[in-house]
Design a binder for these strands. Structure first.
Lengths: 199, 199
DNA sequence: AGTCTAAACGGACTGCAGTCCGGATGCATT
DNA sequence: AATGCATCCGGACTGCAGTCCGTTTAGACT
């Protein structure tokens, strides 16, 4: 009998050596600790590497860039959030009428973007690029718009609805123009109702 | 009779010495030349300083940062654009019905954001911060929404309409998802009509 | 023209992101 | 257990943004 051979699997992103996996965890933990303690902007890659007890080259091999590291850090809470959208309690999760779900979805996204604004800015492209994060919001919004029998270019409408919730826009409104979160949230609901009402 | 004294004027941003003004022009010209020649991303501040024949410190004293320099570079075409909105021919300028003006405004903004995407990204906050640029689009949109008798939180609706035209969103749609500019423009028109139709 | 001061100048210096490569090590196979 | 090699590791190295401070100069006043 032939032993089980570890043949490379086509399409799989390649296995990861045990020490590499250990280092990834150590680095994420170190990064999270430093971010909590000093704020995103004053965390340096050297510091992360040193705190995790590895060399700097290792950080960049694992995560590619500073943005990549921050993106990976975000992924944890983001995954959790996606799970609660897909299978959590209504109105965010399934079970509520589509309009209520859509409103809950936007409000929830708004709060997350405000809470993680620094990390999201620091992640920059790394997050939008990663298929998981950006695409999920767009896909879910398209789905709900479909349920609401909205006609037209659903993909573009979905983008248009999510765009005002992006971090730079929120920063402008909240930090610079001094609007409250409640007002921004109410404005977004108004926008959604207008778009949906027009069929 | 007393001579004319150069007293400091309160509220004025402070006068600028002749050599400083000369250097500002030389730096802007050098920067524009380098950007045209090598692309925004490969222009270094050292190169700009050297091309303009000044020291590096001078660049930073004039423009504060790389983003500031790029913002200043944008200001030229931006000012021209603002002039054509305020006093140019319709439908972008005054004279056309509000809805036509609004649609022309958005389409024009879309084209500019696509054309100057690199420079706008490189300018980052520096542009949004500068009162002139960001605030102008918002103010004009609010004005047109008012003319169209749109009710509700006009400031927020104006932001919501402009948000999908921001560079990162356009990049995602055009470069990554492969949409054409025409489709994005059509989608934006649809969005506007929905928002306006809802009163 | 001479003086005086605030402002501007230049370029060496610092700190951080990201690269590179010689050496170490996990892991599959024999 | 020994072997072989693909992968990983570390930290010195590079390049650029942004700072600092001793020196220079524009230009207002006499």
């Amino acid at each position: 009998m032939s032993e089980r051979l570890n043949l490379p699997i086509v399409g799989e992103p390649a296995p990861e050596r045990a020490d590499a996996a250990r280092n990834r965890e150590a680095l994420l933990e170190a990064a999270a600790k430093l971010v909590d303690h000093c704020g995103v902007d004053s965390v340096t890659m050297d510091a992360v590497a040193h705190t995790a007890g590895v060399g700097k080259g290792t950080v960049f091999r694992r995560f590619g860039s500073r943005e990549g590291l921050m993106g990976a850090l975000l992924n944890r809470s983001e995954t959790e959030w996606q799970a609660s959208v897909i299978s959590g309690p209504p109105p965010l999760g399934p079970g509520a009428p589509p309009m209520e779900r859509l409103l809950a979805f936007g409000r929830s996204r708004l709060e997350i973007n405000v809470r993680h604004a620094d990390l999201l800015s620091a992640a920059g492209h790394a997050f939008r690029r990663s298929y998981a994060a950006y695409s999920f919001a767009a896909t879910h919004t398209r789905y709900l718009l479909g349920e609401l029998h909205v006609t037209g270019d659903i993909a573009l409408l979905a983008t248009a609805l999510m765009a005002p919730l992006e971090v730079p826009i929120l920063r402008q409104q909240i930090e610079i123009e001094g609007m409250g979160i409640a007002r921004v949230a109410a404005g977004w609901e108004d926008l959604v109702r207008r778009v949906v009402a027009a069929g």
